[in-house]
């Protein structure tokens, strides 16, 4: 058929002639590309293009209005001596460390308890998930009331701790709220992983005389490792891009003690109008995220049992 087409239209470089000279695989590749184009095109427009633009802008001095002026690595070198950037970077890492592993382990423990099918499990499960479906603004307002000097926590425990207005307490208070917020979501994921493990393994272990702790340690934990990795990566990703909760709870205070990098990037871009510096910070955050996730994948990679 293609030979016939070639005979019908013998003009040099015509479309039909080009198609005629293609192999079947090439033609299929083009057709395939045309089919996925509606999916790829938005990805290029809304993800790849903005990322490349942001990378370019990170080497410029641009104040949102006017033309960006190239200045090389100036924004990156400025960040080396920027105390606010250092403080926010440390806060971001502290939140990541403080939330990722504790969230995953707590979710694992709660999932084991829920899997034990004790009485009223049907009631507990929605309760654990409730914080996840609450709007962030509501959660932050409620917790800011709890954390007030004369709030329910101090009154209930007979304490007088300035939870959100003391730099020593503000970050732990924020981390606790974040763990509480995401526990239900991570528990559901972990529970799915736990319930996927064949019961034969436990029966065999029980016959061999293994107790509940040994079964959890030697059977459940190794087999939910991929789920654990997923939870840790998601929790870390949430922590590295954290913005709303500290913004609502403490506005980054006291004195920047709870201001994560995402909030500093937002302020630098849209309040201080320093787009070049903000995009440079974003790329450092991106590289940091990739590095952290790589380490997590390496440490929690599947191993032979």
């Amino acid at each position: 058929m293609y030979e016939q087409l070639g005979k019908v239209d013998s003009r040099p470089y015509s479309k039909r002639r080009v198609l005629a000279h293609m192999t079947l695989a090439q033609r299929r590749a083009i057709i395939g590309l045309l089919f996925v184009l509606p999916g790829i095109l938005p990805l290029f427009i809304f993800v790849v293009y903005p990322m490349v633009s942001a990378l370019y802008l990170s080497f410029t001095n641009w104040q949102l209005v006017g033309t960006p002026v190239l200045q090389g690595f100036g924004n990156y070198t400025d960040l080396l001596g920027d105390t606010q950037f250092h403080q926010s970077l440390i806060v971001t890492l502290e939140v990541a460390v403080g939330t990722a592993l504790p969230s995953a382990l707590l979710a694992f423990v709660v999932a084991l308890l829920l899997d034990a099918r004790v009485r009223f499990t049907g009631w507990y499960q929605p309760l654990f998930f409730l914080p996840t479906i609450l709007p962030t603004v509501v959660t932050a307002i409620v917790w800011s009331m709890f954390y007030q000097g004369n709030g329910i926590i101090n009154a209930g425990l007979g304490l007088a701790i300035p939870w959100l207005t003391d730099a020593r307490w503000a970050l732990p208070a924020l981390i606790f709220m974040l763990i509480w917020t995401n526990l239900g979501y991570f528990t559901v994921i972990m529970l799915a992983g736990v319930r996927n493990i064949p019961h034969d393994y436990y029966e065999a272990a029980r016959i061999d005389g293994a107790g509940a702790f040994r079964m959890a340690w030697h059977i459940t934990l190794p087999l939910v490792r991929p789920v654990l990795l997923f939870v840790v990566v998601i929790a870390t990703s949430n922590a590295l891009t954290l913005f709303a909760q500290p913004y609502l709870l403490t506005q980054g205070g006291p004195a920047g003690a709870t201001r994560p990098l995402a909030e500093l990037i937002y302020d630098t871009a849209f309040s201080y109008l320093n787009i070049g510096k903000a995009t440079a910070m974003s790329f450092i955050l991106l590289l940091l995220s990739l590095l952290v996730v790589y380490v997590q994948f390496y440490v929690l990679r599947p191993k032979d049992i």
Partner: peptide
């Protein structure tokens, strides 16, 4: 003056 009475607000 007790700043802990009104964090953020």
């Amino acid at each position: 003056y007790d700043p802990s009475l009104s964090p953020a607000s």
